[in-house]
Design a protein around this nucleic acid. Structure first.
Lengths: 149, 149
DNA sequence: CAAAATGGTTACAAAAGTATAACTATTAAA
DNA sequence: TTTAATAGTTATACTTTTGTAACCATTTTG
């Protein structure tokens, strides 16, 4: 790896270190205010809204959390009827998780709630910047998924 | 705001909800492993590496944390000699915070540590994707700063 | 079939983040 | 000049996150 690449990576890290607390500020607070879900549980819900069926281990792997935490989050989501545990017929050790209809609806609704909160701030942005934020957040997400999974 | 813009904002929120835990995974863990700083304190340090002088309130405002938390973080950083409290001669209520030389050096070093960890994963990316991640993380950061401060 | 590996849960402890009220010191305003 | 507002600190309580060890059930391996 050459000198330039090294510098680029350093800058990326610096950006990510900067972005993370801003997201905490923007998201965590609103999540607490607008929903009765932990941020962590909401992240699991968001993951499940992307993948139709995931095992406990897969969820833990994708979100980088140890299995006991996944169990705890899923427990909460199950109590709220937002997800279902479905045991795998082929391997009875495996517990698959699926978003319930209520879970799907709730997640969409929560996104709308969060959006409406953020929209107040996003309104300061012109159409052009909005599209830029859209594109760049897509890209960051796509690449982070690629290198962390 | 028209229908399309609404959808774009929703998608952005979804992206951010997705990105946040990935960053936690990628950063928080490494921060814990590689440094003896809380993630929160490191974020404060990172902020101060951008701005030469910030008051306690400004730090709290920029990172979206209540003043008592800022006090706690700064206390830790002061103990480690990474930042200095400088009382403002014009308004003696104000306490300004400045990165010490050691703080500057340490932050650079920590960035290198985190980079080396992440580099292992980033190595999977080709030069092209690396630049894309760089550009898009820059953009997300720039726009988040604009709408959250 | 016995042993090892895997998937998941339970239980406990520690670290960090979060919220809030009450307080001091200082400055600004009436 | 008394009152109100601002900047910061202290103290406390609570939630969430994080880490780990031990455990059961099931599957795979030798």
């Amino acid at each position: 790896m050459n000198e330039n690449t090294t510098k680029t990576v350093d800058k990326i890290i610096e950006n990510l270190i900067y972005i993370h607390p801003l997201l905490s500020k923007g998201l965590t607070r609103t999540i607490r205010a607008k929903t009765n879900l932990n941020p962590g549980s909401l992240y699991v819900l968001g993951l499940l809204s992307r993948y139709p069926l995931l095992s406990m281990s897969e969820i833990g792997c994708k979100l980088g959390m140890p299995k006991p935490h996944v169990t705890a989050h899923i427990d909460k989501l199950v109590v709220e009827n937002l997800v279902e545990r479905i045991s795998d017929p082929n391997d009875r050790r495996i517990v698959n998780i699926k978003l319930s209809l209520k879970g799907k609806e709730n997640f969409d609704m929560i996104i709308k709630e969060l959006s409406s909160e953020m929209r107040l701030r996003i309104n300061k942005l012109d159409e052009n910047k909005l599209v830029q934020l859209f594109d760049s957040s897509n890209k960051v997400r796509e690449i982070l998924v690629e290198i962390t999974f």
